[in-house]
């Protein structure tokens, strides 16, 4: 009853930086496409049946954790929510994301980068106020909580950096992810930092003034965050400091 499934080819850039004996190379894997197949399913099938030494990162496989960014036919995407059926030619090329340290094959070190970024922009609530957690919580205007939540949806997957030309020119650029984090705390009523304080963190060419507004970040953000708006907003705020 069911139609014959087509055969697809997945071509993967394989390279192990810790193994100097083997050069980077493309390896083609052919497999039968099943209905609803995602790259998560396809790569696991390749590892189980064809190449047990293939490295990649998945955790939630539901587009929530941000582990599986990779470059698929030239575009950075979350692999777990990418269906193989979206590629009619049946040939899919996978590369590790640029902008991050390569671990092996499709696995890159986003965690290390994001930790450094978080520390650099002090990606937490800064306040002198002590909260008594036995007492009723401070009120927050529902609209404001919603706006903060909207920006807090970032999963730090790194696709914005993998699509960022500024990051190529300025290795220390904090990226849309970093600027979004600052915009988020700038809006949060719990945070007591002033625009002057934020200027200290991102008021330079590795921060908000480095962005060339090419907006690959906005185009590829899997959470559809309003990155263009927020970068422009932070830039206006930072320009008006001093």
């Amino acid at each position: 009853m069911s139609q014959a499934n087509r055969e697809i080819t997945i071509s993967i850039l394989k390279y192990d930086p810790q193994d100097k004996t083997v050069e980077p190379r493309f390896v083609d894997y052919k497999l039968e496409e099943t209905p609803g197949m995602t790259l998560f399913i396809a790569l696991n099938s390749i590892r189980s049946n064809q190449d047990a030494d293939l490295s990649y990162d998945f955790v939630c496989r539901a587009g929530i954790c941000g582990s599986c960014g990779m470059v698929v036919n030239g575009k950075p995407v979350l692999a777990c929510r990418t269906l193989t059926s979206t590629y009619p030619e049946g040939v899919i090329t996978l590369l590790p994301m640029p902008a991050f340290e390569l671990i092996k094959d499709l696995s890159v070190n986003t965690g290390k980068w994001m930790d450094e970024m978080s520390k650099r922009v002090e990606s937490w609530i800064v306040t002198n106020e002590e909260t008594d957690i036995s007492k009723v919580e401070a009120k927050v205007e529902p609209k404001v909580a919603e706006e903060v939540f909207e920006l807090d949806r970032c999963i730090e997957c790194g696709l914005c950096l993998a699509s960022c030309a500024t990051k190529l020119m300025r290795p220390n650029f904090v990226g849309a992810v970093g600027l979004n984090r600052v915009a988020r705390f700038q809006m949060d009523p719990h945070d007591q930092r002033t625009d002057e304080d934020f200027y200290e963190l991102i008021g330079d060419d590795d921060g908000v003034f480095g962005c060339m507004s090419l907006l690959g970040c906005e185009d590829h953000c899997p959470k559809n965050l309003p990155l263009q708006n927020k970068i422009a907003y932070m830039r206006r705020k930072m320009v008006s400091v001093k």
């Binding site: 957690i133 529902p142 949060d188 719990h190």
Partner: peptide, 18 residues
């Protein structure tokens, strides 16, 4: 209840009563 209030102070943007 203490945990949730602590998290509010740490920045979790809990949905609020309108």
């Amino acid at each position: 209840p203490k945990a949730i209030r602590e998290l509010a102070a740490w920045g979790v943007p809990w949905t609020r009563v309108q």
